[in-house]
């Protein structure tokens, strides 16, 4: 069973969201997602300053096996990206909730936070996908 930390929020497209306070969130992909992807070799992130809307595809994770879109789970402005992934994409596999984070958003509509899945609901979602 994959690791699903209870203090994080999730979306069905397998991104996790950490509320950093002051309307800022950090975003990455879940342990379950990295396990499905296999070894990650490139991560293409949005640019700092990009405005994204919830559900937009805003980047790509390339693993040895497949390319997979990164979706913005919430709307807002990209204020920081994880530049270390350029040289060390394998951190997405080794530490998906820590060093393998993708980007941070300044939310334009913090109310969207209420639409996210909690750990239990996300675990059920993974289960239902088989």
């Amino acid at each position: 069973m994959s690791n699903i930390p209870s203090e994080l929020k999730y979306v069905a497209s397998h991104e996790w969201i950490r509320d950093e306070g002051n309307g800022v969130v950090s975003i990455g992909v879940t342990d379950h997602a990295q396990d499905l992807l296999g070894d990650v070799v490139f991560v293409e992130l949005p640019d700092v300053g990009d405005e994204v809307s919830a559900g937009d595809d805003c980047g790509v994770v390339e693993s040895v096996k497949a390319a997979s879109d990164i979706y913005a789970p919430l709307s807002g402005e990209v204020i920081e990206i994880n530049e270390d992934l350029e040289d060390s994409p394998e951190m997405v596999n080794s530490d998906p909730y820590g060093d393998g984070w993708f980007f941070r958003l300044k939310l334009s509509d913090p109310a969207e936070l209420d639409d996210l899945l909690d750990a239990e609901a996300y675990a059920e979602h993974c289960e239902s996908e088989g």
Binding site: G38, D39, V41, V64, K65, E90, N93
Partner: peptide
């Protein structure tokens, strides 16, 4: 077997 942890 596809891999035993890491294909790389």
């Amino acid at each position: 077997p596809l891999h035993y942890g890491s294909q790389l």
